[in-house]
Amino acid sequence: MDLSIFGFLVQDGLATGAVYVLLAVCLVMVFTVTRIVLVPQGEFVSFAALTLAGFEQRQRPGLAWILLIAGGIAFAMELYGAWRRRTRRGLAVAAFSFLALPAALSAAALAGNALPWAAQVLLTCAMVTTLGPILYRVAFQPMAMASPLYLLIAAIALHFVLVGSGLYLFGPEGVRTAAILDGSTEILAMPVAFQTLMIVAASLALNLVLFAFFGFTLLGKALRATAVNRRGAQLVGISPDYAGQVTFALAAAIGALSGILIGPVTTIYYDSGFILGLKGFVGAIIGGLAAYPAAALGALAVGLLEAFSSFWASAYKEVIVFTLIVPILLWRSYAHLTVDDDHE
């Protein structure tokens, strides 16, 4: 391996690792606030890339059907809940969030082929972000107080539903979106693509935005309070259902941005989200599903390990990456001998 190959591998590892950082941070955020291991996190990534590619290829937006159907189910659940409580409180907000907004975005998506590229990106992000709270309302809110094991089973079931829907609506073909930035520059006498620099910069900027959001905004502090003590947060007036929907919206938005960033550098299929999310999960495991900086560093290490494994042993790169979980879990099992039961 010469210096030029080493440089290209580092670039590839940093680009993919920056996306894994975003996914790992999302998994940690969702788990700490809702106790849900968000297995379908990768589907937000793949759906965003596939939707944007559909706009670029002038195809019908398959995501619009998922939005409309899931939104209709969510609103029907809200209607049933209002009937049981004998109150109409919250129905107006639910009608807007689960019916009007998905319908408006779906109508805009029908004309998405004629929109400028930047508007297509914004529309894609808006559609995927709207899907997040809808999925939480349908799949997780009715069982929000269940044990993490039941929530994990629900997350796995939702993953299979979304993958099957993706196959039906987007087809089995892989796609790549158009490069956001063309060209390259030189850093330390090595060519570095502008696309790589933009991915790393976007990941860093988004992590800084999340740090400011959780540290200095009232909503961010409410989510942190829910993560620390769900029961205590509820007693002081923080709705766990609202916290869950906001968290899923953030996770979906970050997943959409990740899909737009990674779409030009790798081929995305309807089921690519699972592998992407699983690699972000490895980084989250390094952080113990609780520590954001450790999860981010772990996800970056996963990207670099994957890049160098593809050079030395490309047939075993996935095995090498996922085997990284084993020593981490062994170390944590010896470092933390006590087990806390969740009695909520």
Rank of each mutant, 00 (worst) to 15 (best):
A154D: 00
S165F: 08
A154Q: 11
L167C: 05
G166P: 09
L158E: 09
A178P: 03
L181S: 10
A155L: 08
A155Q: 08
I156R: 07
T177R: 00
A179H: 11
R176V: 07
L181Q: 02
G171C: 11
V163N: 01
L158I: 03
L169P: 09
L162D: 01
P172I: 11
L167A: 15
F160I: 11
L158M: 12
H159S: 14
F160R: 04
F170G: 13
T177Q: 02
G171T: 08
F160K: 06
I156M: 12
L181P: 03
H159F: 14
A155F: 03
L167E: 13
P172K: 11
L169S: 12
I153H: 02
L158F: 06
F170L: 06
A157T: 14
L181E: 05
V163L: 03
V161G: 07
F160V: 07
R176L: 10
A154K: 05
L162Q: 08
S165N: 05
H159L: 10
H159K: 04
I180M: 12
V161R: 05
L162R: 07
D182F: 10
V175N: 06
I156A: 12
E173C: 00
V163I: 13
G166I: 10
L162H: 07
G174Q: 07
S165W: 11
G174H: 06
G166V: 12
Y168F: 13
Y168T: 10
V175W: 05
G164C: 05
I153P: 06
A155V: 03
A179F: 11
L181F: 15
L167T: 03
S165Y: 04
L169F: 15
F170H: 10
D182R: 14
I156S: 15
D182L: 13
L169G: 11
R176F: 03
I156Q: 06
R176Q: 14
S165L: 05
G164H: 09
A154P: 01
V161Q: 03
A154W: 02
Y168P: 01
D182P: 05
I153T: 12
G166T: 06
G164Y: 08
V175T: 14
F170P: 00
D182K: 08
L181C: 04
G171A: 11
E173S: 13
L162F: 13
S165V: 08
A155I: 08
I180K: 02
A157P: 05
H159C: 07
G164Q: 13
I180L: 13
L158Y: 00
I156K: 10
G174E: 05
P172A: 14
R176C: 03
I153C: 04
L181D: 07
F160P: 00
A154I: 12
V161E: 01
T177F: 01
V161S: 04
P172F: 09
A157R: 02
I180Y: 11
G171W: 06
A157Y: 01
G166A: 14
R176W: 00
I180N: 04
A155R: 03
A157K: 00
L181R: 05
A179R: 09
G166W: 04
L181K: 06
A179N: 14
V175I: 11
D182V: 02
L162K: 10
P172V: 14
